[in-house]
């Protein structure tokens, strides 16, 4: 068990970054959870009680094989199956940029969770900017797709995301910007490849998204 956890941490520095923010024994909802690898990692490291949400059949099956609770559902239709304030953390790991209803999912995360954690590839990274200046849509290890086959329809920079948080009444509690497994503190919007944010509701009582 221990070896698996440490090897996962080495292979997935983004998991380790998220795990640093998670309090032990907390209740977690992981949106777009894939085969449940992050939840399994958090379970082993922090004894969390977790549920994943996933739409893809192969991933749902992967979760069951990993012994992870999973709810097969489309994030684009919101989180109506989950009650207000019912999770300590709602995680959206590298999925935001592929969602149609970006703003709605942030609001839903704020409704369902006491805190939200989002990670996404930083479009403001200098190599991306360079490729755009050279006249092309960026292709990189963090954004490995071509413009015509990418699932990433809502790419953003750190600044863009922070503006969205303001608009959604989300108060940013912590930010971490990384390049592979190294934290980037100097010029993060230029040098960081992957951004992590931890946020909560500006106003603590959950706002219903019925309106």
């Amino acid at each position: 068990m221990v070896t698996l956890t440490s090897s996962t941490a080495a292979q997935r520095p983004d998991f380790a970054a998220i795990a640093n923010w998670i309090k032990p024994n907390s209740k977690i909802l992981d949106l777009g959870c894939g085969d449940g690898a992050l939840l399994k990692y958090l379970q082993q490291k922090h004894r969390i009680f977790g549920f994943g949400v996933e739409i893809d059949d192969a991933n749902v099956l992967g979760c069951l094989r990993n012994g992870i609770n999973v709810i097969q559902s489309d994030l684009e239709s919101g989180l109506s199956g989950f009650a207000d304030n019912s999770f300590d953390y709602v995680i959206l790991s590298q999925t935001l940029q592929a969602m149609k209803h970006t703003e709605r999912i942030i609001r839903e995360m704020l409704r369902v969770g006491r805190e939200g954690i989002v990670s996404f590839p930083n479009f403001g990274h200098w190599k991306n900017r360079l490729q755009v200046i050279q006249g092309h849509m960026p292709v990189s290890d963090a954004l490995p797709y071509h413009w015509y086959d990418t699932p990433n329809i809502h790419l953003c920079t750190l600044g863009d995301f922070e503006n969205l948080c303001k608009q959604c009444d989300a108060k940013i509690l912590e930010r971490r910007v990384m390049k592979q497994d190294r934290p980037i503190r100097f010029l993060p919007n230029l040098r960081g490849k992957l951004a992590f944010y931890r946020f909560e509701r500006q106003n603590k009582s959950p706002k219903s998204t019925q309106d």
Binding site: K27, F49, F51, D57, V60, C63, L64, I68, N69, V70, I71, Q72, S73, G81, F82, A83, S86
Partner: peptide
């Protein structure tokens, strides 16, 4: 879910 029961659901 409201009762914190372990559940998996597939459609």
């Amino acid at each position: 879910l409201n009762n914190n029961i372990n559940v998996s659901y597939a459609e």
